[in-house]
Design a protein around this nucleic acid. Sequence first.
DNA 1: AACGCGGGGTA
DNA 2: TACCCAGCGTT
Length: 357
Amino acid sequence: MPVEPDFPDTDKIPRALLAWYESHARDLPWRKLPNALKSEGAPDPYHVWLSEIMLQQTTVAAVKPYFAEFTRRWPDVQALAAADEADVLAAWAGLGYYARARNLIACAKVVMSEHDGRFPDNETELLKLPGIGAYTAAAIAAIGFDQHAVVVDANVERVVARLFGIDAPLPGSRSTIREYAEQITPHFRAGDFAQAMMDLGATLCRARDAKCLLCPLSDHCAARNLADPTRIPVKAPKKAKPQRIGHAYWLEAQGHVALVERPAKGMLGGMRALPDDGWRAGADGDGIAPAEAEWENRGEPVAHVFTHFSLQLQLMVATPGSFDPDALPDVQWWPVDNLDNAGLPTLFAKVARRKMG
DNA sequence: AACGCGGGGTA
DNA sequence: TACCCAGCGTT
């Protein structure tokens, strides 16, 4: 039986959490800590935005090197808006969910053209920008501008569900969880509170490991009294992943390999890639090569797992002495010795490694 | 409301 | 292997 939203400890929760955060905040590149030791003033909204987009469904460890590289190459939103789109997509390669990179560019351009190069400081306006949804708008408003906003990500969902013993399954319980999150979100230090909730979820109140003995909120927590606090939140069962097979084609002539640019919509949209035979989530590839050549099987298929299907991708290789460029007008002939800089998404980077041995 | 969309870390 | 992760846009 969940506790009512007017749970008497709703005021104690943010205070206990913020006190814990003072000494346990993670030291992250995009963050200005509240500690005097590290305090450097307000965070740069550009850094907050960039990190939030990169962190969507992506772990902190994966984001760190990308954040460093992006801020080095494009130090502000003006630089990013003026960047070559192919360069930005290539720099994003390996991070996944490539629509984020396309929306990142679009958002930077809108901020320049419609907001005078400054990010809006409120949720409503932030929500109108490409790639910024309910979570990210709230996070930027709170963290970047210290605005009151209820920030609910997967960490907050888990912490709140456990605090109030919400055992209805996600995603159906999302609106209920949000109501409780509103109850405990203070009207001061909004950014610190949001980040403290995320740090608690990332370091103590973890999905499969609840370190209740170390938790500053355990006195206020319903799940604390369960035999297994990690039973909450309950999640709906996942659908099985289909298994797909397909081919990728390595066509090499005179030290160059044929790359294509994938369609802007759909999987790996807009990314450079090897030609393939049309495999997708709903169907296997047709085995038809992109051009007439002496194709040879090369090694075992490369195994790769996407969100919604698994793929076995067979590498096919042809290396004619010369090749008529007009026969494949849409390909870019990329120097084989510079393939590391082609910005191939991980699937095709794996296939290229198979080829290079 | 459900689905499509990457990839790496972790137990 | 299975699950998880600072979600968003489309249908």
